[in-house]
């Protein structure tokens, strides 16, 4: 069995947790600016952000797995958004655009006199929703860790 299989699920959940944290921050920004004239509310498209985050992680690990040839003419920067690694010693950075493209402007449900588009009811609902899902992701991680530890125990151990 590949050792990576132990942590693959964990990697995915870690990314999801990271994005939940980002979304929590975006919603906190919206709530903080509920009274700021001209502020435009932002919202994260969680599904596409997560898809992008997991996809870019796959390409990074793919480029890591492929050994960089010593020749200067080696094909680099093939992946858009990834920083070019031109030397074997370079550490590939994660995609600069990752996460940003998941961000959208929230469509205002009502126009406001000061052109602020924060809908407090919706933000509160999103905040509660995101908190619950953050905790759910945490529990997934905890359960996964416990399952793995259980699997590692010898049968003689209780």
């Amino acid at each position: 069995m590949n050792v990576n299989r132990l942590t693959d699920t964990l990697d995915f959940q870690a990314k999801a947790l990271d994005l939940r944290g980002e979304r929590q921050r975006i919603i906190a920004s919206n709530i903080a600016n509920a009274d700021t004239p001209g502020y435009v509310a932002r919202e994260m498209d969680f599904a596409s952000a997560l898809r992008e985050a997991t996809a870019s992680a796959g390409s990074v690990s793919g480029s890591l797995a492929a050994p960089v040839s010593g020749g200067a003419s080696a094909a680099f920067a093939a992946t858009p958004g990834l920083m070019a690694t031109t030397d074997a010693g370079h550490i590939p950075l994660r995609s600069l655009s990752s996460g940003l493209s998941g961000l959208r402007y929230a469509a205002p449900s009502q126009t406001n006199l000061d052109s602020n588009t924060v809908d407090m009811d919706r933000e509160r609902a999103s905040f509660a929703d995101n908190s619950v899902k953050y905790e759910a992701t945490l529990r997934f991680i905890n359960t996964h860790v416990r399952t793995m530890l259980d699997a590692m125990k010898s049968p003689s151990q209780g």
Binding site: R42, L96, L100
Partner: peptide, 19 residues
């Protein structure tokens, strides 16, 4: 008082907007 948004810097480039 008049409020204004302050963009805060984050390491990963995600926007954080204070007041």
């Amino acid at each position: 008082v008049s409020f204004q948004t302050v963009m805060m810097n984050t390491q990963d480039g995600m926007p954080a907007a204070g007041v």
